[in-house]
Structure formats: structure tokens, C-alpha cells
Design a protein around this nucleic acid. Structure first.
Lengths: 218, 218
DNA sequence: GGCTAACATGAGCCGGACTCATACCACTCG
DNA sequence: CGAGTGGTATGAGTCCGGCTCATGTTAGCC
């Protein structure tokens, strides 16, 4: 499931010890992100906490952004893994139930997974092309650029659940829905550290109402 | 209209010359943000381009974030000013027309105003409280914290247009709508530098469908 | 055991945010 | 008109973080 080295790492860890080191660095990165945020996070501190010399850090990660990108990918993999797991455990009959499920799973991840707030989920489904460079967001554009595979997987799930009603209209609607949901959920966690339940509910409502104009009930 | 010094500046410019300097610094900040983004923007370069020594820069702005905050406030003022102007020129009968207008005005600002992309519009209406520190977004939390006045003004406009149907439900719905719209519009500009018209249209649709469950047609 | 290539290490370089001792100026008052 | 005074202007310099690279270490092979 996890493929941290999917083009993100400078050098793929060969030995078991190296792989553990990379994982430790990602763990500490996640914790530090939650503690101090992206700007205040220093590569020195990540390396120090992970018990890895700074030089070794840069053997694996080309720069600070690459570290965060790798973490974002790991988190994204975990997120999709959970959705797939729940769906294969109990397939849903209604597409709306499925969007609710995705929202719930997102909330669960935010609550339990350190550093998960960094994944700008909306960027996953959108094209990477934009030339404008926009602060922090930028770092994920490039990150997920080769990751259309994952995006496709998610869309395939929805299309399957939606009764095979694919098409350009659906594609665009899904991208919009994901983008909007991501933003509202971020707001929910800004409002309350554990995610304002009212806003989470509102998020589900937003998606349902929006997609109701497009997808049929089964 | 513009109140750059609304608590953002270290020292309020007393003389005309100082005020011009502050404006020039904000102008150059905006241009640099569009050119290189937030991270790559350096205070030295802003000062140099504005023809201001670095020491003077720090007389007015406590740090790099404060500079961007001040710009965000200036942009926000301009944005609200345009909406108010258009509404007072020709009041609308339908709340949906008004949300469309706000979207159009937002798009127009993005196209014409340098550095406008930095304003995370959604944060304006949401409470500042969140303790979690999140990369770039963080810099606006604090920025707009004392700016609830502006947020209220915008809400008042909507309530008025909506036929006085205020209440906690409407408040929350508006916050959600603004947050979602902001995200989708950002996506539109990521997709195409001039703002993908399809996505702009989709944004209007999203808001209409969502709010249609709450607000009556007039 | 000697040789080579890959890997590990951390002192140090570079540049950017921010400060502070000093110079300057506008204005007052003797 | 000149000395005094409080605010303002300045940019060399400090501090610190991202990142490198010369050197030391280990692993694998003959």
C-alpha cells in the first residue's frame, strides 16, 4: 500500500535500517508539523528527533518540501486504503452514502493521523499544470503530479457506485465536490480542534445537494 | 475605504511621504507574490524595489507576515468596496443573483489585482480561534482576526438581500458557502490562469443548489 | 589482507529575516 | 540664529535555517 519512494525520494532505501530511518523521519515530520507548522519546521530538528545526522537526511530527501511531499503521499495512501477497505467490507447501494463515508473517513484520519492536515486533498484530483506559484499549496502540486493513478482509483470507485454514469460532466462535478468538501472540512477543524460536528454534517449536505442534480438515486 | 493601518502596522505613517512608502511596499509585495510566491518573497527585495531601506521596512512592518497581512486587508477592502458599489448602483431582487455577482466580482479581482490570490477569503467569515498552526494559512488567521466588522458587513448585505431571514442556520450556511466557493474558484484559477469559465459556472451552481435548501426565492 | 565503491557524517557555507547603534532631520526655545 | 531634543532613517551586522561536500567508515569482492 505505502509507496513512499514513488519518485519522491532522492535515494530509495535499500537496507532495512535505511527504510526504518526514512519512516522515523516521516513520523517526526508529521509530529513537528502538528506542533509548529510548516514554516517553523526545520530539517535539523526533524533529523535530530529521528536520530539521523543532517547529511543522511539530505541523502533521502532533496529538500524540505520533498519531506513533506513524501508524508503527504503516505497519508494519502493510508486514506484511500481505509476507504477501499470499508467499501470492500460492506458495499453501499447509494452514492450519497459513499460520499458520507468518505467524509467520515477523512474526519477520522484528521483526528488520529499526525500531519494529515497537510494533504491538500483537493489538489489530488485536479490537474497539476498551473504555472502560478502559490505559497504552501505549491509544494503539493508537484508532489502529486505523478499520482494521477490514485486519483483515477478514487474516481473509479465513485463511478462504479454511481452506476457507471461516467462522463466529462461527472468528472468536473467530482473535482468540484472534492475541492469544496476539503475546504469545508478544513474549516470544521479550524473551528474546533476535533472537527465541529455541525460543519461536518453541513459538508455532507453540501455535497449531497450539489451532486443530487447530477447523479440518480439507485 | 482603505485602512491599512488598522492594527497591522507597527507605526502608523504620519507624513505623506511615509504613507506613500507604505503603499509602494505593498504594491511591490503584491507583484512579487505573483512573480515568485510567498516563500521565495524576500523582505530585502520588496524594500529594494520600493526604494526603501530595509530598516525603514521594519519600522512599519513587524515581519514578513505582517506585510502580507496588510496587503490582504487592502485587497479585501477593495473587494468589498466593489460589491457594495455594484449593489448600491443596482440592487438585486434575487439572492441567487447576488451570490453570482459576488463570484463574478471575485473573478474580476483575481484577474486584475496583483497578489489577490493570497487572500484566503474563507477565513474572513470564520472565527480565528483555531490553535493549530497550518503553514501559509496561518498568516491570515491572525491577520483578519480583528476584522469581524468587515465580515459582518458582508453578512448584513446577504441577510438584507435574503429578506431578513437571519439566524444561526443562515450564518453557518453562509460561512460554508463562502469557504466552498473560495476553494472552487481557487481551483478554477489553478486550472487556467484566467480562471476556467466552466468551473466558475460550476461554482455558482454549487452555491445555488446548496443555499436553495435554506433561502426562499423572492 | 588489500582494493574499491557505496554510504554516513557533521562542520561549514550561503543567504534571508530581523536588529540596533549611529546619523539625520524638523522643530522649539533662549 | 544656534543649541537642544525627540522622533525618524539607515544599512552593516547578527543569528539561524537550508543545504553541501570533503572526509571518514563500512561492505563486498578477489
Amino acid at each position: 500500500m505505502t509507496n513512499v519512494a514513488g519518485g519522491t525520494l532522492r535515494r530509495r532505501p535499500a537496507q532495512r535500517r535505511s527504510a526504518e530511518r526514512v519512516e522515523r523521519m516521516l513520523d517526526e515530520c508529521a509530529r513537528l508539523l502538528d506542533e509548529v507548522g510548516y514554516e517553523a519546521l526545520t530539517t535539523k530538528e526533524v533529523a535530530r528527533r529521528a536520530g539521523v545526522p543532517i547529511g543522511t537526511f539530505y541523502q533521502f530527501f532533496s529538500d524540505k518540501q520533498a519531506l513533506v511531499r513524501a508524508l503527504a503521499l503516505r497519508n494519502l495512501d493510508a486514506f484511500l486504503g481505509r476507504i477501499v477497505a470499508r467499501l470492500s467490507a460492506a458495499p453501499l447501494s447509494d452514492w450519497a452514502e459513499m460520499t458520507d463515508l468518505a467524509v467520515d473517513e477523512f474526519v477520522a484520519m484528521k483526528r488520529t493521523t499526525p500531519g494529515f492536515g497537510i494533504v491538500d486533498f483537493g489538489e489530488v484530483l485536479s490537474a497539476p499544470g498551473g504555472p502560478a506559484i502559490r505559497g504552501t499549496e505549491r509544494m503539493l502540486d508537484a508532489a502529486l503530479e505523478n499520482n494521477a493513478i490514485v486519483a483515477d482509483r478514487l474516481r473509479a470507485l465513485v463511478v462504479e457506485q454511481a452506476g457507471g454514469a461516467a462522463g466529462p460532466g461527472l468528472d468536473r462535478a467530482l473535482v468540484v465536490a472534492v475541492e469544496a468538501a476539503d475546504a469545508v472540512l478544513k474549516l470544521a477543524f479550524r473551528t474546533r480542534p476535533d472537527g465541529d460536528p455541525d460543519l461536518v454534517a453541513e459538508c455532507k449536505l453540501l455535497i449531497r445537494r450539489y451532486l443530487a442534480g447530477l447523479l440518480p438515486r439507485t
